[in-house]
């Protein structure tokens, strides 16, 4: 009876598992293999060991992209997380218009990154765009520039657009975390001023730990996945100054037909995320045991 039931279980799992092997597991492993080859997508892959990886670390474009990913990660760990937490704390009460404020703040999340890329592309447009127009109107003419053509600022211009999309997500996660804390505790911290800060630091923040962990994992994974906005706003330019690993991989594999080399970038990206994925899986295992 019991073993019959197990057979049924495996029978039900067959379809989903075969598909998952075909489109997710298999491809991941195959990319690891491709990263050890020279491959143009047409002739068969030629095994070259770790050569692609040696070459990567001598490739200035790869280094720039890697550094940009790190800048992206650090900006994401600070700005959306702090802003999201502050907004969550401010909106975790019955203030007038509370629901509308929340909806407004997380509404950018439903827009596709491409739409955001286009809208912000327009904001950054040198001639007549919203940002330069605004700077001119308020007399800060000297700050106007081609935001997406200046290698000094382009990366941060794109990150700003991505932050705009991410803050709402962080806020929602913190709001969910705050719901588990009794309102009295929070109220007390807010009314008390100076000692309120201490209460926040010593009582509320530790109670928010589970939410914080999720926020960090989600934020880290999102920042390594950065692709859509970079690809659609600048394609990594000018002169790769806004390139990130995900976009570099796409360009190498699908524009330059260097699929082995592209594969090795994908593997690096995976390795960078690996520690966080394992950390997340461990958290999940812990929940299982509890």
């Amino acid at each position: 009876m019991k073993s019959n039931r197990n057979k049924t279980a495996w029978f039900f799992l067959t379809g989903p598992l075969v598909l998952y092997l075909g489109w997710v597991i298999g491809p991941s492993l195959y990319t690891v293999y491709l990263s050890l080859t020279k491959y143009d997508g047409l002739s068969s892959p030629e095994f070259i060991g770790l050569k692609n990886f040696y070459r990567l670390f001598q490739d200035p474009v790869f280094i720039t992209s890697l550094v940009n990913n790190i800048k992206w990660l650090l900006s994401f760990l600070v700005i959306p997380v702090v802003l999201g937490l502050v907004l969550a704390l401010l909106l975790n009460n019955q203030i007038k218009g509370n629901k509308l404020f929340k909806a407004a703040i997380y509404s950018p999340m439903i827009l596709s990154p491409i739409v955001i890329g286009l809208l912000w592309g327009w904001i950054y447009e040198p001639a007549g765009g919203l940002l330069n127009s605004t700077l001119s109107v308020i007399g800060l003419n000297y700050l106007t520039r081609g935001w997406l053509s200046d290698p000094e600022v382009v990366l941060y211009a794109i990150i700003a657009a991505a932050v705009w999309r991410h803050v709402g997500y962080v806020m929602i996660l913190f709001l969910a975390g705050l719901k588990t804390i009794p309102l009295v505790v929070i109220e007390a911290a807010r009314v008390d001023g100076a000692s309120g800060w201490k209460k926040f630091w010593h009582i509320i923040l530790p109670m928010l730990r589970p939410a914080t962990v999720i926020v960090f994992v989600v934020t880290i994974i999102q920042s390594f996945r950065a692709f859509d906005m970079v690809n659609s706003m600048t394609e990594g330019g000018p002169f790769n100054s806004s390139n990130v690993l995900a976009n570099l991989m796409y360009i190498e594999a699908f524009k330059n037909y260097r699929m082995g080399y592209g594969g090795s970038i994908a593997v690096i990206l995976f390795l960078l995320m690996f520690a966080f994925i394992v950390f997340y899986l461990k958290q999940i295992m812990k929940n299982e045991v509890d």
């Binding site: 997710v24 594999a253 995976f270 295992m285």
Partner: peptide, 29 residues
Amino acid sequence: HYRFKGNIFIYLTFVGGMLIPYQILMIPV
């Protein structure tokens, strides 16, 4: 619903799969 050997492993495979970078799937897919 079912308890069987490999259950947790398959579950973790699904969870791990949702976190990987898309780039590692692009060429083979």
